[in-house]
Design a protein around this nucleic acid. Sequence first.
DNA 1: TTGTATGCGTTATCAT
DNA 2: ATGATAACGCATACAA
Lengths: 329, 329
Amino acid sequence: MSEQKPVPTMKDVAREAGVALGTVSKVVNGLPVGEEYRVRVEKAIKELNYRVNSYAKGLRSNKTFLVAVIMPNLVNPFFIRLVNCINKALAMRSYRMLFYATDFDPQQEQEVVLLAEQQKVDGIICLSYNPNLKIPANIPLISIDRYFGALISCVSSDNYGGGRLAAEKLVENGCKNLAFLRIGSKLTNEPNKRKDGFISACEALDIPYTLKIVDDGTPYSAFEEFLQEHLHNGRLDFDGIFCVTDSLAYQIINSLKGMGLRVPEDVQIIGFDGSRHFGDMELYCSTIVQPVEEIAETCVSMILEKNLLQAPSLLCLPVSYAYGGTTWK
Amino acid sequence: MSEQKPVPTMKDVAREAGVALGTVSKVVNGLPVGEEYRVRVEKAIKELNYRVNSYAKGLRSNKTFLVAVIMPNLVNPFFIRLVNCINKALAMRSYRMLFYATDFDPQQEQEVVLLAEQQKVDGIICLSYNPNLKIPANIPLISIDRYFGALISCVSSDNYGGGRLAAEKLVENGCKNLAFLRIGSKLTNEPNKRKDGFISACEALDIPYTLKIVDDGTPYSAFEEFLQEHLHNGRLDFDGIFCVTDSLAYQIINSLKGMGLRVPEDVQIIGFDGSRHFGDMELYCSTIVQPVEEIAETCVSMILEKNLLQAPSLLCLPVSYAYGGTTWK
DNA sequence: TTGTATGCGTTATCAT
DNA sequence: ATGATAACGCATACAA
């Protein structure tokens, strides 16, 4: 078993190059230094295979090039897309992503924020379901989909506009009677506005609508019962359904098929998110697409911005409609 | 704008508690200390809301409680499941995950390994496609699905056994003529063994088989052409197809349906991975399930083990068959 | 058992 | 422009 050669430090480089420690530091950080010195230092760095110790650097400079990303999980496609895009946006700027999953647990969410603080990350991007989340004073934090008050910037899709767009598209496609189906947290958060937008469009267009809204944890069968209640002589009361997520839409479509109804011939369906089979193949359904890349870019560029304090407190990014086979077009 | 209160340090705690710096350190690290002192220190910690600076700690102790996870991306469901499970396994042990995506690019893979080394992570878990990856000497590294030689532990599914199992299951379900379809890297890696296991079972069972194997980057249409070539009078030459991934199986199933063939009546299909709709709903197809949780657990517990040197160089974890509607059972 | 002092590898402030 | 030196916050060997 060979002895592990100790990792070289700046001191070693300085000795090897025959210069002072400070000179090495300047070369490493691209500060002005005599040409001849620079060459010698760079040669020594290469020879020793020296690399900056990011922990020493972080300790000294209070800058870690680390950003904590806090999400409920890596199962929901929307969260996955977010994490993927945020990671790319960070990598492009030479930042690294420290990932924390919270499993929707408010207590874990709080713990993890504390952990991130302790880890001295340069920023936190967080999708939290904890309304009472205590936010660290010393670290910039950006929230996705949850408004924590004017002091914390929140980035989200234009959920209200998305709800409206869904209703409008269904009507454009000939629907005369709509339904909105939702399962989710009853805490106020941005995605809740999908309903409001939907209702607003229905009323503007003078289209009748029905709502079925249940709390997280409600078994899916609640929706099947709802559909059965509205099934008369093999026909459903509505001819257009807006589901709060693609995932719910997927289940609803299966249920409808099980009931002998055809999509989109008998009922048209629009979901929300833009999830795709295997992450990058076809859409599961016609849907309102969340601008995930833009959300990620926005979060990252804001979090790395110095003057976060004067940033807008709520930033809604435009959604778009995408045809996915469960509407006429 | 109020001044930011400076983050308290151990020194502040020591002063507040009226004890020496070393005592605080011991309390924080759970080392034996006089009861009365401990209480005083803990009180001061709470009052000042003190938390250890992980950068100072890491610098001093050469231990960061960070593990780098290197994956091609967060799009492929298998990678996502791995990252999710690894993250959980790490969190359970109070380690944090630093995530790096490489986009299958060998150069990025190499850079990212260097970055992780520089970040002083306690270990690296890596799914790489770079056969020449230069591996750091000072940091334990575990590879998933790629064998780098006896010195680097490699964890993977029992791909060979999985290939054999797929063939056996198809035959059990009545198939008389099989096909194996694969697209992927031509570099030797563990998943390549799926083919070998498949062939071995076909020969043992004396079942004829056809192979269609194309390199990464080949357009999918190559498979459609292959299917067309083997379609005569509306009947396919084979009645059972083993696809190298669920993702490919999904596409193949769509193609077959487009050709007017029924699954599983005319052709039975088995995939590989165990991907599910929306990450946790039904399977896409009957499939050989990779034991992702076990792979993750194994990687994490090995990487945190002191004596990685005497670990086995290749660890194959058992796969299982799961019915997903594209076979008879 | 508690306190003191040194050093981890770096940056930044000084004189030179 | 370069070189010496202090300080970042913590752990630990050593002295009390």
